[in-house]
Nucleic acid binder design. Structure first.
Length: 952
RNA sequence: GCCGGAGUGGCGGAAUGGCAGACGCGCUGGAUUCAAAAUCCAGUAGCCGCAAGGCUGUGUGGGUUCAAGUCCCACCUCCGGUACCA
């Protein structure tokens, strides 16, 4: 009884594709048959110990369908897969169990590979890579050395070799060491003392992005900020290019906006406030006249950055960040104790504490004053943690009348509020603002600003900036929220830096650094007996054997860099390596690079919207500047697949007495517990679907409709126990059903809840397709007697060609759900036919092949009489084309509306002219009576669509 | 707060400004069966009606249009992200 049995079919065809190298891709695209190259890429997974999640195959199935589709259309498709295999979980596992991270990583990769193959994805497995492969990270290290060897020429907006960096004469004169130090300060990869997020529990420093609400992203441990010598990548130099490059990318508008906001370009002015003796202000001012601003600022000024130079007259005080270098100098003796205490408190405060709660403003007065350059009046300088040391100049001029934060601070500390912008008449608290008792952040007419009064603030912005520039007191300036990329981690399981630190005779570092020569890469990880962090902000590689730590090169002794790179490093360039995965001589062959790049379609989760995509774009631009790649941007088109949630759950709430509480009354208290109206904590109870009924636009308890029940699908999580395992789905329904269901759920980009009965639904469809073609009552696999060698009749041809067209168009536009719906309609139609022409059956099997490839291969073989050695497997068939003439109908039904409501239907030729259609409409049995005694005011005929008669 | 996205049957969803609810799930009825499963057929937005048919319906309120789920204005709810960037 050959019923559809995926457990038998699927492994068989997977083995066939593997032995026949069905999806192997040639080194270079073959464009001889008129196709084009297509590089279709998935965001590669981190191979976690949990195996694949049903979220993974969503994007993977989409790209697999696209790849198979374009391959059948004659294009050259590159569709690879790999693993982002460095990362914290493997190391945490190693710390717990003592098992080497590589052992666990390899095991997980093996499991992921098994699962991916089980789903029938047509990857070219010969190109598979893992970021942990020595042959791969050798080139990650090489790219780091490219960054190390590059400086950014701001004028040319170009990364250039470090030996082309112009050396100022005075540096040149100071000798070789000064020159080396000068170069080091300009490299794209440089070391700096940075305030870093030190997480004692993880024993490592984290990037800003890995800290959420002051807690570590992994494990939610508290994070402190301490200064540490770190490797940084100068991504800020590329801010402008990263911003400009977004323009031409075919990415979702939301993602582009996220990147723009992350880069956070703002323009305004830098202004120097005099902090010397007030009596000497005029003399100081005269001395500055017409000279450009000094870099770094002179000793006697406090420099601020502002985007609102038009409000300069309203600056009534200044604030510097607690970490600002001038704090000590500006603090007077009387204030010293208070300031010291405040700074200390601020440095111990985690980010969480700084941002938690209502964020009431705190700060202390330094005792000093600065002189507002526009009117010469002294204003007090405060220290407050609402000003960030890392943005702008770390100091601000505070304009409480026109900045909410400054206003809150001024109110808290009784500082004056002086309005200098008149809010437009429609602004509600206009009078309060003008009286110095309110805050208005918009623009308007300038007041209280001397010569600038009466002009519009936009105009005054540039006027004041120009005036200050002319006086040598300010200049136009641009700032970015984007910070340089903290690139080192105090971890074992990452790429070692290919950097050596020179040692003197006593074994002390001289400060001179040297790149490991290219031919000595990769720098491998040392063998360690134990992976536990020692709880100091010092990398585990410090524990490596001396034979690894110390190197002698050209007679000089060096110590290796012991930091490792962050997980992002390997994922920054993997898309390049797939193109030339086995190249020993270069990271990529430029000929192959030019042939395949850029990526034509990149599919992955929105959680990588900013970091991975920004970091890769940055590396790509550096590689582009240094001649390693030809295109300016790596990813042409980007799609974010939506999240897949767990099955919909109904949740009710019960109080301590076990009585139901309507979800309408549930609130969150300050500890974010769910509480009822009286404030006592309630517990969430899962309610079975059968005990729930719809009432109005919500659900309620069947036994007591006054109790409202929440209905919601939640994010899949181990804790909630709603994770769907792809292995189980394949076991029960088959890989083709899983693939089809993932695509049938809804649009690729939408967030969608999982539904196991929906998987059963698409399985039912595949069963129907099977029975439409196969004789399921026979003992061996053979065609259903209904499949006949005769041509389609007109209606069958219309269904067949209409389906070819719809599936083709929908696959091109990634509307997989509607393509599947159309194949279901085809199947419903032909199942009802007792004569099913072979051409139609072959057609549906070919259309189905990208979506459900295993069953399609099996049915194709069956249609071919069991032997496909002559015709080839269906994955290699050409994609069918539709015959437009088969779609033409001799008569079509057209709705007739009277005043916009459908009142009848007429049958007309599809190309009937307006007069004919109108005539038929007016004479229609249903319509004619409704027209008597009325006048037709207007007739609208939309050819082929409808008729609308407007009557009175 | 701010920034995105989304609100359409019991559920997932479909619909170049042109017949709202394709397709699937679920449900109801029927056929088949000793029975069940499986399968096949029919029905399935709500209300009124024996029926023919009518009325109301795409989060809410307005507007544009011969015609609005779709366009415009105001608002509500949910989901996701984000947090003092001067």
């Amino acid at each position: 009884m050959p019923r559809y049995n995926p457990a038998d079919i699927e492994p068989r065809w997977q083995a066939y594709w593997e032995t026949h190298q069905t999806f192997a891709t040639a080194d270079l695209p073959d464009l001889s048959r008129g196709g084009r190259k297509r590089y279709v890429l998935d965001m590669f997974p981190y191979p976690s110990g949990n195996g694949l999640h049903v979220g993974h195959p969503e994007g993977y199935t989409a790209t697999d369908i696209v790849s198979r589709f374009y391959r059948m259309r004659g294009d050259s498709v590159l569709h690879p897969m790999g693993f982002d295999a460095f990362g914290l979980p493997a190391e945490e596992h190693a710390i717990k169990t003592g098992e080497h991270p590589r052992v666990q990583t390899d095991r997980n990769i093996e499991n992921f590979t098994r699962q991916l193959k089980m789903l029938g994805f047509g990857y070219d497995w010969d190109r598979c890579l893992a970021t942990t492969d020595e042959a791969y990270f050798r080139w990650t290290q090489a790219i780091f050395l490219v960054l190390y060897d590059t400086w950014f020429d701001t004028d040319k907006q170009l990364g250039r070799p470090i030996d082309q960096l112009p050396i100022p004469a005075e540096v040149q004169a100071a000798g070789e060491a000064a020159v080396a130090e000068y170069r080091d300060r300009h490299r794209l990869a440089y070391q700096d003392d940075a305030l870093v997020n030190w997480c004692p529990a993880l024993g490592t420093v984290l990037a800003n992005e890995e800290v959420i609400d002051g807690l570590s992203e992994r494990g939610s441990h508290p994070v402190q900020r301490i200064p540490l010598r770190q490797w940084m990548l100068r991504i800020t130099s590329y801010a402008e290019r990263l911003l400009d490059g977004l323009e031409d990318l075919d990415w979702p508008a939301g993602i582009k906006k996220l990147q723009r906001d992350w880069i956070g370009r703002s323009s305004g002015a830098e202004v120097d406030f005099f902090i010397g003796d007030a009596d000497t202000f005029e003399a100081w001012k005269a001395s500055r006249a017409a000279r450009p601003l000094a870099d770094p600022p002179a000793e006697d000024v406090l420099r601020v950055y502002t985007t609102r130079p038009d409000t300069l007259f309203g600056a009534t005080y200044m604030v510097i960040a607690p970490e600002h270098p001038l704090v000590e100098r500006l603090t007077t003796a009387e204030q010293a104790k208070e300031v010291r205490a405040y700074r200390e408190q601020a440095s111990f405060k985690s980010d969480r504490e700084r941002t938690e709660g209502d964020r009431a403003k705190t700060g202390v007065f330094t005792g000093s004053h600065a002189i507002n350059p526009v009117h010469g009046q002294p204003i007090p300088i405060w220290v407050a943690d609402y000003v960030l040391a890392t943005y702008g100049t770390g100091a601000i001029m505070a304009v409480p009348a026109h900045d909410v934060r400054d206003y809150e601070f001024a109110v808290a500390f009784g500082l004056p509020v002086v309005p200098v912008i008149e809010p437009p008449a429609e602004v509600e608290d206009r009078d309060a603002v003008l009286a110095g008792r309110g805050c208005f952040v918009g623009t308007g007419r300038v007041i209280g600003s001397g010569d600038f009064d009466g002009r519009d603030s936009a105009e005054v912005k540039s006027a004041i900036t120009e005036k200050l520039a002319a006086e040598g007191l300010g200049r136009q300036a641009i700032n970015y929220k984007l910070r340089d990329w903290l690139f080192s981690r105090q971890r074992f399981w990452g790429e070692p830096f290919p950097i050596l630190h020179e040692l003197d005779d006593q074994g002390r570092p001289t400060g001179v650094k040297r790149a490991v020569p290219l031919d000595q890469l990769p720098v491998r990880l040392p063998e360690l007996a134990d992976f536990r962090p020692h709880g100091r902000p010092e990398p585990p590689l410090e524990k490596a054997a001396e034979s690894w730590l110390y190197v002698t090169l050209d007679g000089v002794r060096y110590k290796r860099e012991t930091n490792t790179m962050p997980q992002w490093a390997g994922s920054c360039w993997y898309y390049l390596r797939y193109i030339d995965p086995h190249n020993d001589g270069a990271l990529i062959d430029p000929v192959k690079e030019r042939a395949w790049m850029p990526v034509d379609l990149y599919v992955g989760g929105a959680e990588h919207a900013v970091l991975h995509l920004l970091y890769s774009r940055f590396w790509h631009k550096v590689l582009h500047d240094r001649g390693h790649v030809s295109c300016p941007e790596p990813f042409g088109r980007l799609i974010n697949q939506g999240m897949i949630l767990g099955e919909v759950e109904f949740t009710g709430y019960q109080n301590e007495a076990g009585e139901w509480v309507s979800s309408k009354e549930i609130r969150r208290d300050q500890q974010s517990n769910r509480v009822d109206a009286s404030g006592s904590v309630v517990k969430a109870v899962v309610v079975a679907e059968a005990d729930v009924e719809k009432s109005g636009d919500s659900f309620s308890l069947r036994e007591d409709p006054s109790i409202r029940i929440d209905s919601r699908a939640h994010k899949m999580s181990k804790a909630r126990g709603n994770v769907v395992n792809p292995d189980a789905v394949v076991h029960e329904y088959g890989a083709d059903s899983l693939r089809l269901y993932e695509m049938f759920m809804g649009p690729l980009e939408a967030t969608k809840p999982w539904s196991m009965s929906g998987v059963g639904g698409v399985r039912g469809f595949l069963d129907r397709v099977w029975r439409m073609i196969v004789d399921d009552r026979a003992d061996e696999l053979r065609l259903s007697p209904a499949v006949v060698d005769e041509p389609c009749d007109a209606e069958q041809a219309r269904v067949l060609h209409g389906t070819i067209r719809k599936v083709t168009e929908d696959t091109e536009s990634l509307s997989f759900n509607t393509a599947i719906a159309r194949m279901m309609e085809f199947t419903n139609f032909f199942t009802r036919c007792d004569r099913r022409p072979r051409e139609a059956m072959e057609g549906i099997v070919v259309l189905l092949a990208p979506y459900a490839p295993h069953i399609a291969e099996e049915l194709w073989q069956c249609l071919s009489g069991g032997d496909i050695s002559q015709v080839g497997c269906v994955s290699r068939r050409p994609w069918p084309t539709w015959d437009e003439s088969a779609l033409v109908q001799s008569q079509i039904e057209m709705p007739v509306q009277i005043n916009g409501k459908v009142r009848g239907k007429i049958l007309v030729a599809p190309d009937a002219d307006e007069a004919t259609v109108l005539g038929a409409a007016r004479e229609d049995d249903r319509i004619a009576p409704q027209l008597t005694g009325k006048t037709i005011v207007k007739s609208i005929v939309v050819p082929g669509r409808l008729v609308n008669l407007v009557v009175k």
